[in-house]
Design a binder for these strands. Structure first.
Lengths: 209, 209
DNA sequence: CGTGAAACCTAACGATCGTTAAGTAAGTAC
DNA sequence: GTACTTACTTAACGATCGTTAGGTTTCACG
């Protein structure tokens, strides 16, 4: 059983402009604070037009998230498919995620704001399912790395959480900056993977207590 | 110039119950979605009582955040004062932060929800200043570690951001669980510091490209 | 030409929001 | 006793929210 039913992407031009305005406003002000009045004003249409294309504010939001999530999901799948070993995969995931988020920072802003912001009962399950899909992809990559002996440790869940903390929180914080593209660079992505792999200590691993 | 003026802590019993109810509801639903009606209902008083103690909803929120932030700030200062070297300090900061957040998970929930959730113009500057204070403490510890040769690298800001990403995102995610105390343990804190220092690779540092 | 669906409009609906005006009961000071 | 402060009360205010009933324009198709 899933809350992710098929959602058609926007076909009409007006509909896409609605979703794009909704993305800007939801990303900036959050689900509750962004009113349908603002969204339709930014689109340049009247209110019933929104309800002509969407059955409710919640439906508008879900369709928007689905639309952008599918893009991100395909992008991630392409990255995984193009590499084999764990470390290059992690590097590619981080570089790809940075690039994806720098291209349109409204998307990560929307995602993190709704995921870590106030719980909105109507969409909580929906968002949790999307987050779970993404995490399990990372976890599988990490698990493969453990199995192949590339990574040290036993708990792929804990390791994946650390990796996601570093990746997501950097995206979360840096995509809120005025020019996220200046910060979400491939160089930063690589240096983060290095820290994840080798740490920041000046001493050797042997000193680990 | 600062937006942090002196705010008196709650003196009256009713006032403290109001702030405590506000903490529960702001932490659960966020600043906008938690209405003053819910807060006064949870406290068991009538609406003008809230406006007798606070000049507005915004004032109530600021007083609440100030109240809990001061606790956290003193706790962090005590930790820094009790240790000298960088690595033990990082360990103590992470253990202490986990313990502080496990004691009352509503506090981190409130903090992260308002910090990473929808921007609320009225309180954005106020929250940014609090976050900046905390970050600069961490950065000073890291800078000391770089100066003393305990840590490798050159950019204390980038290193501090990585440390805060690991620490804060774990708190953020785990304090949302049903029983945060089961996850925010000293053992997890220590293992996170180990990863921060030595990484998760099974290979030696020399393989860093 | 006629018809029906698609795309849009004006104008309101009820509910909830933060806030406050105006009044009252209890305790303290002089 | 009377003036004053503290800690509340009832009852409303105007604004904004998501949503919709009902009508109008546009246009492809027979």
């Amino acid at each position: 059983m899933t809350v992710l039913e098929a959602v058609r992407p926007p076909t009409n031009d007006t509909e896409e402009r609605l979703l794009d305005a909704a993305l800007s406003l939801f990303a900036e002000k959050g689900y509750e604070a962004a009113s349908v009045r603002e969204i339709i004003e930014a689109t340049g249409v009247t209110r019933p037009v929104l309800y002509y294309y969407c059955s409710s504010k919640e439906d508008l939001f879900k369709r928007l998230v689905h639309w952008k999530h599918d893009e991100a999901y395909r992008s991630l799948g392409k990255i995984i498919g193009g590499t084999k070993e764990c470390v290059p995969r992690l590097r590619a995931i981080l570089r790809g995620s940075f690039k994806f988020c720098a291209t349109d920072p409204r998307v990560p802003r929307l995602m993190f704001q709704t995921h870590f912001g106030p719980t909105i009962p109507a969409i909580a399950d929906f968002l949790a399912e999307l987050a779970g899909m993404r995490f399990s992809i990372i976890q599988q990559v990490i698990q493969d790395g453990l199995d192949a002996g590339e990574l040290a440790g036993s708990n792929s869940g804990a390791l994946s959480l650390i990796f996601c903390c570093i990746m997501d929180q950097h995206i979360n914080i840096l995509s809120r900056m005025p020019e996220p593209g200046k910060y979400l660079t491939p160089e930063l992505a690589d240096s983060l993977v290095d820290v994840f792999l080798f740490g920041v200590s000046s001493k050797k691993v042997g000193s680990r207590k």
